[in-house]
Computed example of a mutant assay.
Amino acid sequence: MNKESEIIEQAINILRDRTGIKVTWQTYGKAENRVYGIVFQERVMQFIVEYKKYLTAYQVDQIIRAKDFRFSLLVVAEQIAAPARELLRKKGVAYLEANGNIFINTSQAIIFLDGNKPIRETKPVTNRAFTKTGLKAVFHLLNNPDAIAGTYRQLAQETGIALGNIKYIIDGLAEAGYILPLSKRKVTLKNKRELLERWVAGYRETLKPDLFKGAFRIQVDENRDNWQDINLKDLNMEWSGEPAGELMTNYLQARVWTLYTPGLNDQQANAIGLVPDRKGDVLVYNKFWSEKNNNNTTAPPLLVYADLLITDDPRCIQTANLIYDHHIKHQIESN
């Protein structure tokens, strides 16, 4: 039994035990076709199933854009974030969560249950590729895929990560299915789109909170109104998130300003007019990558993309998708 079948079986059993609603399921054709029938009151509804371990709001549009229109889409996940469930319902996309939360709205039946708490699982052994340190290395590899072919020592020098950690990180990537051996001594990255999704999730949950330096506000109105003219190059700072999205696409108008810097000092704060404010809309983070950005104004597109996605704000997600299509797609989706 594959993972999506396990989740469907588990969720349907919970649904029956807690509500008395009797639903069964069946498959059609080969497992890789992912076509399932959900049977309710002797009516069969056919779906193409998309499985995700954990689904957040920013992934919803990506899934819908890639759906197979031969059948309606059913998202099956171990856990679906509340904003993602709401967005799926608004878009009329069926979902089934391991804890029994379900939404199906077709001409044949309407089934809806929400509010079940996520199922707690035994915490697995951490893959070293997705620790705070590992995520920094993965970010470098996603930006520089050819670096995976270098030596551990070269990768350590490029990332500033201790040589002893590099082997564990590469082993973790191989164990997770993201490294393809080409010969005895040569390897390449594979499943890069999936790796990017996993990196974004890890960045959101594990790495980014650790990088946060503080919230500020710009007390000088002129600087706030003309933030695009601030000379970040000389200040060793880079925009990400909404301001970078605005600069890169001309589609978004920034409401929250995200800055990365190796270390915030008085000179930088005074030049911009930053003052600490817990409710401020300027968020400053530690820069965690070592390579120089030729733009010198915005952070690497992959980071801007991630910072926009994890806001769960539809306008930011749309901007992130534009950045992906124009700045990232060719590198991630190439062989």
Results as ranks from 00 to 15, higher is better:
Glu4Gln: 14
Ile7Asn: 00
Gln10His: 12
Ile14His: 00
Asp17Glu: 11
Thr19Val: 01
Ile21Thr: 07
Ile21Tyr: 02
Ile38Thr: 04
Ile38Gln: 01
Arg43Val: 15
Gln46Pro: 13
Gln46Ser: 15
Tyr54Arg: 15
Leu55Pro: 01
Val60Tyr: 05
Gln62Leu: 14
Ile64Phe: 03
Ala66His: 09
Ala66Tyr: 06
Asp68Lys: 11
Arg70Ile: 07
Phe71Trp: 15
Ser72His: 14
Ser72Lys: 15
Leu73Gly: 00
Val76Phe: 02
Ala81Tyr: 06
Ala82Val: 09
Arg85Lys: 15
Leu87Asn: 06
Arg89Ser: 03
Lys91Cys: 03
Gly92Thr: 02
Gly92Met: 02
Tyr95Val: 05
Asn99Leu: 02
Gly100Asp: 00
Gly100Trp: 00
Asn101Glu: 05
Ser107Glu: 12
Gln108Thr: 06
Ala109Trp: 01
Ala109Pro: 00
Ile111Leu: 07
Phe112Tyr: 10
Asp114Phe: 00
Ile119Gly: 03
Ile119Tyr: 05
Glu121His: 14
Asn127Pro: 07
Asn127Cys: 15
Ala129Ser: 10
Phe130Asn: 06
Thr131Ser: 10
Thr131Asn: 04
Gly134Leu: 02
Leu135Val: 10
Ala137Cys: 12
His140Ala: 09
Leu141His: 06
Asn143Cys: 12
Pro145His: 11
Ile148Gln: 05
Ala156Pro: 07
Gln157Lys: 13
Glu158Val: 07
Glu158Gln: 14
Glu158Pro: 05
Thr159Gly: 06
Gly160Tyr: 09
Gly160Trp: 11
Gly160Gln: 13
Leu173Asn: 01
Leu173Glu: 00
Gly177Val: 05
Leu182Lys: 12
Lys186Thr: 15
Thr188Ala: 13
Thr188Pro: 02
Leu189Pro: 10
Glu194Arg: 15
Arg198Thr: 01
Trp199Ser: 03
Tyr203Lys: 06
Lys208Asp: 03
Lys208Tyr: 07
Pro209Asp: 04
Asp210Gly: 07
Asp210Trp: 10
Ala215Leu: 04
Ile218Glu: 04
Asp221Gly: 12
Asn223Gln: 08
Asp225Met: 14
Asn226His: 14
Trp227His: 03
Asp229Gly: 09
Asp229Tyr: 13
Asn231Gln: 13
Asp234Thr: 15
Trp239Thr: 04
Pro243Cys: 08
Pro243Gly: 05
Ala244Lys: 03
Gly245His: 06
Met248Gln: 13
Ala254Met: 11
Arg255Asp: 10
Val256Leu: 10
Thr258Glu: 09
Pro262Asn: 06
Pro262Arg: 04
Gly263Ala: 12
Asn270Ala: 14
Gly273Leu: 10
Leu274Trp: 03
Val275Phe: 12
Val282Gly: 02
Tyr285Met: 06
Ser290Ile: 15
Asn295Arg: 08
Thr297Asp: 07
Thr298Arg: 03
Val304Tyr: 06
Tyr305Asp: 04
Asp307Ser: 11
Asp307Arg: 12
Leu308Cys: 08
Leu309Pro: 04
Asp313Pro: 08
Cys316Leu: 11
Ile317Cys: 06
Thr319Lys: 05
Ile323Arg: 02
Ile323Ser: 01
Tyr324Val: 08
Asp325Leu: 09
Asp325Ile: 06
Asp325Glu: 14
Lys329Ser: 11
Lys329Ile: 09
His330Ala: 14
Gln331Asn: 14
Ile332Gly: 04
Ser334Phe: 09
Asn335Val: 11
Asn335Glu: 15
